[in-house]
Nucleic acid binder design. Structure first.
Lengths: 331, 331
DNA sequence: CTGTTAGCGCGTTCAA
DNA sequence: TTGAACGCGCTAACAG
C-alpha cells in the first residue's frame, strides 16, 4: 500500500482552508460557514477524497468497528444472528470483524479483536471459561452475549426464555401421551444446554411424574450428521418423541427415523427449537419453538451501541418472546 | 475508549530500552541481541502489552484486514464460502470485515471498506456494474471474485466450470429420456446465470436436438420460498425434470412437487448445483453437482494474499474441479 | 467561524 | 546492536 493518494491536507490546500475546517465539514460539525462548507465539499467531490478510517481511529480512539465471535457461520442459526447484527451495525455505521472460533480458541480470538481496537464485542459462543471472563473484565470492553447465556449473570445478553420454551414443548408432547421423551442436546459442556434447555425439559417431566433416565439424554454438536447418528440412540432408548435443541440435528433425527420406517408424527414426534428455515425443508416439516433469531442479533447489537455510548442498560438480560409452530412432526 | 493502557513506550521505559527496540522484538526483527530481546519480552508479558493494530496500520500502511462483500450470509452457499475464507485468513493473520450487500449497494459497501484501509477485497456478489468496476480500477486495490464470474474477464476469480457442470447434468437428464427439462435460475440480471449456467443447459438441449421454449426458464432469488413458488410454474410448463442453480430453491421445487403428489424421482427428476448440506436434509435427498464450496473460499483468499504481496498469479481465473452426486431425486 | 498545534501509538530511516 | 526523530492522516483542544 503506497501512501494514501489524497489526504485531508490536499483538500485543505485546494480549498484554501485549514485542515481543521475540512475535518469539520467531513464530520458534520455545524460551526462552518455554509459558503466554505460548500467550497470544501466541492473539492472533496472533485478530488474524490475519502477519510482514512485508520488515522481517524488513532486520533479519536474510536474505531467504529465491533468484533463478533461466532462458533461457526456455517450453521444457519448463527448466520441469521449475524445478519441481524450486521444490519443494525450498518445502521449505526459500525463495521463488523467476524471470526469463527469453533469454541476452541475463544480467548485468542478475543485478544486479537482487542488488538484491532474494536469498540465492543458480540459473543455468540456458549463457552465462557475463566480465562475469557478474566480478559473481558481486565480490558473492560463492552461485551454482550447474543443467543447465549451467562450462568453467572455477569455479561449482558439477549435470548429467549429457553427454560420455558423447552418446558412448554415437552409438556405439549407429554399431553400427546408420550411417556418416554428423548432430549437431543448440544455439547454438555455448554451451560445453555445443561442449565437451561435441559432444565425446562426436566421440569416438564417431573411435573408430569414421568421418569427420567439417562439414556433419554443424548448430545451432538449442532449438525445434521450428528443428529442422524443420535437418531439411532434415541430409537434404541425406546423413546416415542424427542425435543431437539437445533434444527439441523432435528432434521437428522427425523430422517433417521424415516429411514427406519418409523413414521413421523404417527410413530414418533419431534419438536425442535430454532425455527430456522431448515424447518421448512424437511418432510414432514419440523414443528418448532419459534424464536426471533434475526431480532436477537439486531437487539444485541443495539444493546452494544448503548454500552459503547456509556449509556445504562434498562435490561441487563433481555428476553425476547418465543412461540410455537406446530407443523408436520407433531400430531 | 480512553487512552490505551499500556503502550510501546511503557514497555520501553520498563525495559530500559528505546521504543524502537521494543518495536523490533515485537515484529520479529532479528537485529536484536538475544539478551535484550528476552528482557523486553519479559516486560511485555508482565505488562500484558498488546500492540495497537490501528496505530500500526497507520504507521505501516498495512491494516492486515481484508473486506468481504457477500449478498447474504444467511444463504448456506455463502456462509460456507465465508468459512473457507476466514480459515485461510486466520492462517495468514488477516482479519475479515464482513458486509452483507443484498446486491443492492455494492459500491457503497465497497467504498466504506476502502475507508477502513482494507488491503484487499473478496467479492462474492454476482452483479458488477460499471460504477463498481470503475471504483475498483481507480483505487487499484486487489479484488478477487469468490464463486462469482466476471464476463469481461478483468477481475481474477475462483469458480467451478459452470457451463460444463450444467451441461453434464442436463445431458444426464436427457439420457433419462426427458424431453422437457426446466431450468430454475437465479436472477436474470446476473451474468453467472445467463452467460454460464444457462448456456450449459442450453448446449445440452441443442446437442440433443431438443426444443427450448421460454416457459422452461424460470428465475427466483435463491431461497426456499421462491423455489416453492417456481415449482408451480415448472409444473405448468409440463416439464418432467429440472436443473436448479441453488439448493434451497431446489428444495422448494422438490417439496412443491411432493405436495402435488408428483413423485420424485419417478414422475419428476431434479438436479441441483451447490451440494451444500441442504441436499441431505430433504427427502428424497437432492442429486447435485458437487463443488468444493469451502475450497473456493479458501483458494480465493489464498489468491488474494498473493495479490496483496504483489506476487503474480499463475492463474487469473481459477477453475476448481466439480463432480456429481446422484442421490434420491434422480433415477 | 476558522486556523494552529499537539498528540494518537507505532514503523522506520539514519546515525551512532 | 541500539536510539533519536520523523511522519502516517486525522481529531481535538485552544486561540483568535
Amino acid at each position: 500500500m503506497e501512501k494514501q493518494t489524497v489526504t485531508i491536507y490536499d483538500v485543505a490546500r485546494e480549498a484554501g482552508v485549514s485542515m481543521a475546517t475540512v475535518s469539520r465539514v467531513v464530520n458534520g460539525n455545524t460551526n462552518v460557514r455554509a459558503e466554505t462548507k460548500e467550497k470544501v465539499e466541492a473539492v472533496i467531490e472533485r478530488l474524490d477524497y475519502r477519510p482514512n478510517a485508520v488515522a481517524r481511529g488513532l486520533a479519536s480512539r474510536k474505531s467504529t468497528t465491533i468484533g463478533i465471535i461466532v462458533p461457526d457461520v456455517t450453521n444457519v442459526y448463527f448466520s441469521e444472528l449475524a445478519r441481524g447484527i450486521d444490519d443494525v451495525a450498518q445502521m449505526y455505521n459500525y463495521q463488523i470483524i467476524l471470526t469463527n472460533s469453533d469454541e476452541k480458541n475463544n480467548s485468542n480470538v478475543f485478544e486479537s479483536l482487542l488488538g484491532k481496537q474494536v469498540e465492543g464485542i458480540l459473543y455468540m459462543g456458549n463457552i465462557i471459561d475463566d480465562n475469557l471472563r478474566d480478559k473481558i473484565k481486565k480490558n473492560n470492553v463492552p461485551v454482550v452475549l447474543s443467543g447465549s447465556v451467562d450462568v453467572e449473570k455477569q455479561l449482558p445478553s439477549v435470548n429467549i426464555d429457553y427454560v420455558s420454551a423447552m418446558y412448554e414443548v415437552t409438556k405439549h408432547l407429554i399431553e400427546h401421551g408420550h411417556q418416554k421423551i428423548a432430549f437431543v442436546s448440544g455439547p454438555l459442556d455448554e451451560t445453555i444446554n445443561t442449565e437451561f434447555k435441559f432444565k425446562g425439559y426436566q421440569k416438564a417431566l417431573v411435573e408430569a411424574g414421568l421418569d427420567y433416565t439417562d439414556d433419554l439424554l443424548v448430545s451432538g454438536d449442532y449438525n445434521y450428521q450428528s443428529g442422524y447418528q443420535l437418531g439411532a440412540m434415541v430409537h434404541d432408548s425406546g423413546a416415542t418423541a424427542a425435543v431437539v435443541v437445533d434444527d439441523e440435528m432435528a432434521a437428522g433425527v427425523l430422517n433417521y427415523m424415516t429411514d427406519q420406517d418409523v413414521v413421523t408424527p404417527d410413530d414418533f414426534e419431534i419438536v425442535t427449537l430454532n425455527n430456522s428455515h431448515i424447518t421448512l425443508l424437511t418432510r414432514p416439516q419440523l414443528s418448532s419453538v419459534t424464536q426471533p433469531i434475526y431480532d436477537i442479533g439486531a437487539v444485541s447489537m443495539r444493546m452494544l451501541t448503548k454500552l459503547m455510548n456509556g449509556e445504562e442498560l434498562d435490561t441487563h438480560d433481555m428476553i425476547l418472546p418465543h412461540g410455537y409452530a406446530g407443523r408436520g412432526t407433531t400430531k
